Lab assay of single mutants.
Amino acid sequence: MLDDRARMEAAKKEKVEQILAEFQLQEEDLKKVMRRMQKEMDRGLRLETHEEASVKMLPTYVRSTPEGSEVGDFLSLDLGGTNFRVMLVKVGEGEEGQWSVKTKHQMYSIPEDAMTGTAEMLFDYISECISDFLDKHQMKHKKLPLGFTFSFPVRHEDIDKGILLNWTKGFKASGAEGNNVVGLLRDAIKRRGDFEMDVVAMVNDTVATMISCYYEDHQCEVGMIVGTGCNACYMEEMQNVELVEGDEGRMCVNTEWGAFGDSGELDEFLLEYDRLVDESSANPGQQLYEKLIGGKYMGELVRLVLLRLVDENLLFHGEASEQLRTRGAFETRFVSQVESDTGDRKQIYNILSTLGLRPSTTDCDIVRRACESVSTRAAHMCSAGLAGVINRMRESRSEDVMRITVGVDGSVYKLHPSFKERFHASVRRLTPSCEITFIESEEGSGRGAALVSAVACKKACMLGQ
């Protein structure tokens, strides 16, 4: 009897593995994704193909990295998701002549009506938060230079001027797309009239992360975010950046690689679950690469896999709870928690219980395998993109072996128990001629924006502006 049951459990697990095998990517698959990513990057950089390229390769006008001589107080704003952060950054000489960066910050959550109302409502709310922060720190009387981390696709015309191309991540505030974001912020500050600010720089969160990590390690020339969304930036040779005049030196390019796949480059790798996630998203047909990796989508992918296993009578005796059938019910943090389970399955059992399920031991094991399959594919897909960037940098610099540091931020990278190990191992397999160091950014977005502002202020002083 026991043997029969054991055989049935083994057969069930084997069927589960057959279904989950769809998520496995072979090294040849990853090399294919990497080569296609490089081709799209090239198209994004070139003037004649930029418009139709899915990977936009947006110039950021960040050319210099901090040298350690900029000092002063800077205000930093960070808008990239449902939370908005205001930070005071003091850049100065530390002990023994070292450079020191001290920060104080406060988080504000953005109400739904500000995210989806008008641009005026959104930026009025942001300036209200700045006003509140300055009151708390008794700094209303000071006109501070301000660095703005704005983590949406922007076409820069200068370091302090950028046109919002399109909202992502659930934002829909009308009247912002096609307009200068810094102008919208300046107008809102003017409307309030109770404080003055000098907006000197606007950067993407990947750029802010790279600059913040450069402060720790001067070989950091790539910034990457794996959180709600997924994106990367890197220092490109100016001669390859056709959208900006000049051939000397390097400029940081914001790849906006989340949109890779929007022209069909990933079609052969998309599964039924991916198509369902895409169809029910706020932007169907867009940001397809990001939807395979980002935390906004990972939990939902797992939920759809679990429903398939229920329908195949391989999980929960073929019956799903009402909660499990509800879109968004299986949160991405559950994926991390399930994979963090120590082996007694308590954590998995508790999560499934909150979803109205009474799982068996085998159910718990199957749910864990589903989570591992989805998150491992995410790590491997992400590795193909980064390997594409790094191999490109090595080739354009004609280096036999390139040493490089990548600064990384984002909740999936930082909080998932195995993502970074799987990701690092896969990147290294795909970049055999590179020695890569990964560092995690601390308060990256805010500190990085302030350091970019410090560079901009120093330049302005040198130019006598």
Rank of each mutant, 00 (worst) to 15 (best):
L165S: 04
L357A: 07
R43P: 02
L165I: 07
L122E: 00
S321P: 14
T437Y: 09
V203S: 01
S131C: 08
S280T: 09
T209V: 13
E14W: 09
T65E: 06
Q337H: 12
G223N: 00
A387T: 03
V55K: 03
W167D: 01
C457F: 06
Q38A: 12
A425D: 14
M210Y: 02
M402E: 13
A379C: 06
V427L: 08
I390R: 00
R275N: 09
V452H: 05
G285C: 05
H137R: 09
A384S: 08
V154W: 00
Q98I: 09
E312N: 13
K102W: 01
P153C: 01
R7Q: 12
V101E: 07
G170S: 01
D247M: 01
Y289H: 14
R368Y: 11
Q18V: 13
E339V: 10
D42V: 10
R447A: 08
E51C: 12
I126P: 01
C129G: 09
E421A: 12
M197F: 04
L88P: 03
A10K: 09
N166Q: 14
V302R: 04
M462F: 15
G175F: 04
T209K: 01
E52W: 09
S174H: 05
T332P: 03
V71Y: 12
S174K: 05
V62I: 08
V91E: 03
A387R: 03
R36G: 04
L430Y: 05
E339Q: 09
K90F: 11
K39S: 07
T118E: 02
I126N: 00
S336K: 04
V408P: 04
L324Q: 05
V207A: 06
S383I: 02
C364S: 10
L288S: 14
S127E: 04
A282M: 13
P417F: 08
V408I: 10
C213F: 02
L315S: 13
G80W: 04
M57D: 05
D247I: 06
D124R: 04
N254C: 04
A329H: 15
R155I: 07
F419H: 02
M115I: 13
S127W: 04
D267W: 10
I110A: 00
T82W: 00
G448Q: 01
E221Y: 13
M139V: 08
R447V: 15
L144H: 10
R394A: 13
Y125C: 04
S375I: 01
F260M: 12
Q465F: 06
L58V: 06
P66F: 15
K15C: 09
S453E: 03
A370D: 06
T362I: 07
G464M: 09
G294Q: 02
V86N: 02
Y215F: 15
P153Y: 01
S64T: 15
S340P: 04
L30Q: 07
F316E: 02
E177L: 08
I211E: 15
K458F: 08
H416F: 11
F150L: 05
V86Y: 03
T149N: 03
M381G: 05
R192N: 04
L2S: 11
R403C: 13
N391S: 11
E9H: 10
D3F: 12
T206F: 04
A11E: 07
N240E: 13
V452K: 01
R250N: 08
E322A: 11
M139R: 11
S353D: 10
K32M: 10
G170R: 03
D3S: 12
H380W: 12
L30M: 09
E22H: 06
R358T: 12
D160S: 06
E40Y: 02
M37N: 05
A450P: 01
G170F: 01
H156M: 15
E157G: 03
V302L: 08
K104E: 07
L185I: 05
A232I: 01
L451S: 01
V427H: 03
D344I: 06
C129T: 04
M251V: 12
D311L: 14
K104P: 05
T437R: 10
E279L: 15
K161G: 03
C220T: 11
E443I: 06
D278A: 11
T116Y: 02
R397L: 08
L77K: 03
K190G: 12
Y349R: 09
S54P: 08
L292I: 11
G170L: 09
K459Q: 15
S336E: 15
V310Y: 08
F84D: 04
F74Y: 15
F123Y: 00
V89G: 01
V241W: 04
I130S: 02
K15P: 12
L355C: 07
L165E: 03
M139T: 13
V86D: 06
E421G: 12
E440A: 11
T209Q: 00
H424I: 07
G44V: 03
D73T: 15
L451I: 08
F123Q: 00
V199P: 00
A53V: 04
A384T: 04
T65P: 15
A232P: 05
K90V: 13
L324I: 10
S396M: 12
V182Y: 04
M251R: 12
L2K: 13
S411M: 02
R192L: 08
D187R: 03
V367Y: 05
L307M: 05
V412Y: 05
K140Q: 04
S398Y: 11
D29K: 09
V222R: 01
L243K: 00
R377H: 02
S174I: 02
L30T: 14
K13N: 14
T116Q: 05
W257S: 01
D363H: 06
S360F: 11
V16A: 12
I348D: 08
M87W: 02
Q465D: 12
P432W: 07
C230S: 14
Q98W: 07
Q18Y: 13
V62S: 04
V55R: 05
G229M: 00
A6N: 03
Q18F: 14
K420S: 11
A370K: 02
S131M: 09
V62A: 04
V91M: 12
T255S: 05
D113R: 11
F148M: 13
A259M: 03
H156N: 00
D78H: 04
G80R: 04
T65I: 11
A232N: 11
E112H: 11
E322N: 14
I390P: 06
Y108V: 00
S426A: 10
D400P: 04
F150W: 02
L292D: 08
D247P: 10
M8H: 10
E177P: 05
G229F: 08
G227T: 03
Y125V: 04
R377I: 02
Y289P: 07
F260C: 09
Y215L: 12
V222H: 00
S336R: 08
R155P: 02
E421W: 12
S418E: 09
V253S: 01
L165A: 01
T431H: 05
M57Y: 01
T332M: 13
F84S: 03
V302A: 13
T405F: 12
G285N: 14
I348V: 08
E40P: 02
F171W: 07
T65V: 09
S263R: 06
T376A: 14
M381Y: 15
M238W: 03
L276W: 14
R428P: 11
